[in-house]
Nucleic acid binder design. Structure first.
Lengths: 202, 202
DNA sequence: TTTCGTTTAAAACAAATGTTTAAAACAATT
DNA sequence: AATTGTTTTAAACATTTGTTTTAAACGAAA
């Protein structure tokens, strides 16, 4: 028998709705009705819609960042291994939560300074072992000397964007869901190779 | 003296607001107040907020697609030239309208079938000369034999994603606006090279 | 069983929000 | 100047929406 943890039920229902439709389009009555609970309970447990949203947004970002820094700061792996681990781990995450990137990017787009202040650990990427290793490879002449921001943007772009574009790929380009999923699986292998080919000095 | 074309004024004000905050978060009174016109005029000229939104969304997508098919179907250019033209032209467009991708992607994410039905010309990419040339290069053994969807996704990802991530790059990674702009300029040259390096058979 | 703190429910409230109405202002035509 | 069609305005309307209130239901402790 599933034990009824009301605040948890509210949070999970709200998370789904907020991620699907955004803050303004999600109504407190939607949340209550979808969760099958009384309207007043949303405010009873979370004081306001905005506070509920903030909790969910922070948890989402933490969830999204959780494994990232560990992979990028692992001193026992090479940059190539980190690249493979990062891409593979994130494609797995995004296959299960394809709505997260758009949800987060909308928040950063609409309240950049507020949300940036709340997630300081995002900055740690800049000082990560991963980026130090990248700079080292550049210094050794193994990688082409591009701004490390290009490097980061390329990895993030190739990994994340296809999931944001998923509705276009599936509905406009008519790619069936299983095919899309297989493509994303393939990218686990491809992206690290592509990145290396992009940067390799020949 | 700027002649007062009220419907145009409403449309441009609403476009800015819708693209910034989305449909639900934009209130008709926002539009009226920002445009400096009477509230009733929104409904007088566009019947409803939803119809105004639909007009703007369609115009935005048309604006976004306008030059694309011309470049991709130009029979007088090579695939390499098309790549350069596409990337360069789109980075220019996105530098001036960085909000368009997120605006469109949200719409596709929230109403995939409705919006897909309204923009049939999106499909034409699949039959473009650009993709035919890609397949030809693959057949000739000049390019690695990957699914053309990967190819399209890679070009789109590397070109578009950085603009979606702009608020993160600027506010979290603390990159000043002029630096960001310069990075995007650099990508006009880089992306075509990167794409070729990714695919080239060595 | 009574008591007491916690949780849930129904209803109400106040503010907001999209839309309509009806009259006034305007501009062109007769 | 009077008429006519169009545009703009102020006000009102009907819902929607976030939140609060008040009381009922519940469950554990005495």
């Amino acid at each position: 028998m599933p034990e009824q943890d009301t605040p948890q039920l509210i949070k999970e229902t709200a998370r789904k709705l907020f991620q699907e439709k955004g803050f303004s389009a999600t109504k407190t009555r939607d949340i209550a009705q979808t969760a099958g609970i009384n309207l007043a309970l949303v405010n009873y447990y979370f004081r306001s819609k905005k506070q509920l949203y903030d909790v969910i947004m922070l948890e989402t970002i933490e969830h999204f960042m959780a494994g990232m820094l560990q992979i990028l700061n692992d001193t026992s792996t090479s940059i190539h291994e980190k690249l493979e681990n990062f891409v593979s781990s994130y494609i797995n995450l995004l296959r299960q939560n394809p709505e997260i990137p758009l949800f987060m990017l909308n928040e950063f787009s609409q309240h950049p300074q507020e949300i940036s202040a709340k997630v300081p650990f995002f900055k740690e990427i800049k000082q990560s072992v991963f980026l130090q290793q990248f700079e080292a490879e550049v210094a050794k002449g193994n990688f082409k000397a591009i701004n490390s921001l290009h490097f980061m943007l390329n990895v993030a772009s190739l990994t994340i964007f296809p999931f944001i574009a998923k509705p276009i790929v599936q509905n406009v380009l008519q790619v069936p869901a299983p095919d899309f999923d297989e493509l994303m699986q393939e990218r686990k292998k491809y992206i690290p190779l592509w990145i290396k080919n992009m940067l390799w000095v020949k």
